[in-house]
Design a protein around this nucleic acid. Sequence first.
DNA 1: CCAAAAGTGTTGGTCTTACACCCATGC
DNA 2: GCATGGGTGTAAGACCAACACTTTTGG
Lengths: 231, 231
Amino acid sequence: MAVGQVESHPRFSAHQGHPWVAVDVVIYTVDRRVLQCLLVQVKGGPFGGGWAFPGGLVGAEESVDQAAEREVGERTGVKGAYLEQLYTFGKPERDPATRVVSVSYLALVPYRAVRLKLASKYADIRWFAADRLPHLAYDHDQVGRLALKRLRSKLQYTNIVYNLLPSEFTLGELQEVYETILHRSLDRRNFRKKILALGLLKQLRKKRRGTHRPAWLYAFMKRRPMIIEMV
Amino acid sequence: MAVGQVESHPRFSAHQGHPWVAVDVVIYTVDRRVLQCLLVQVKGGPFGGGWAFPGGLVGAEESVDQAAEREVGERTGVKGAYLEQLYTFGKPERDPATRVVSVSYLALVPYRAVRLKLASKYADIRWFAADRLPHLAYDHDQVGRLALKRLRSKLQYTNIVYNLLPSEFTLGELQEVYETILHRSLDRRNFRKKILALGLLKQLRKKRRGTHRPAWLYAFMKRRPMIIEMV
DNA sequence: CCAAAAGTGTTGGTCTTACACCCATGC
DNA sequence: GCATGGGTGTAAGACCAACACTTTTGG
């Protein structure tokens, strides 16, 4: 991209120079009653060996959202995951190697659908319990705190939880995901009352048979983000 | 900034190319019971003659936040205004002249402190009623909708309104600002009850003498952002 | 028959909303 | 004395949190 393009831009003068643009994605999933979060191990540079959220530069032809979606797809194999922009971090010193402005995203993927894939730029990739992350490279500790806060708060007034569940589930399983993420226990009767009152779930005609009394299976009527009030 | 720097970056490969980074700032104020919003008239290019929010490229040495603060200072003369990041817009086609990723901000300034200053890059600058903006250049219609939504919602659970008021004010004036921004009338008794119960205001030892019964003056005890519950 | 998870209503307290009259001043 | 904005309390309804027992199945 030529500098001349910006010098002729009607709103901008080019004297300032400019940073690079990257995305970083905090990818959550729930597996066996634990909220997990995907980290990659940085290979070289001042943070080599440290852990960070996966991310990469935004390409010339793609939108910033697309770059985030691409990163989720490349690392987890999941297409069309739930993605939400968190915040843009732009301090010059946040990455000592280069001036990088980073747009952070929150992503939710169902655990069963994930097939982790390492990129050559990383030394390792794996899930960590979201509330016990190691110290992270760059300013990613801050990104992680923000993501967790946003996830917890958004759980309460949206239906995004459907992104973490299989298409059929029992109310007990649904409640378990809420409890896992919010990190506190909820009253079963109140939970069922409230979530059923929202009218977002439909009861299926089958039950899940386990080791004990079978439970009705439910599904979300619509699998798309909606603003509601929960918990 | 040399490409070689990024090719040697531990996390990124340089094949992608990269966009420019800019900020756009939605600057609100309240004047005579109207929520006003600052627009500039674009000079050349495909949007020449159109109106947009003031903004500019992020400099190599400054953070993105600083670029926004600088823009507010340059246009209004107000230093240290309330600033909050809104969202980052990053579609390649959003600005036809150049690939620009734009970080949008919401700013609040007290009307009395403002001295508007035109930049050579703009044809004009002036206040518009926030709920009657003209069609804007770029994707700024979207930015404006988002800013207004955020302002209204944040009014309800923070104390940011202090950024729009002089240091001393009556409860009537405070309520008027709320009503102006929320665009609906509030019950006076309930409003006073609630806002006083928050304990954020102190009653001063003086009254404002107007054309009728004098009203007690109040001030915010702390002029810094806090999370609360209002309205 | 025992263990384990599923299922189900009511009550008290808190919070929110709606609403009407008197007061102090300037003109 | 009248017009104008300032100042104040209560009652009804909505909402939320707390709480215990019975049912159904597998082993």
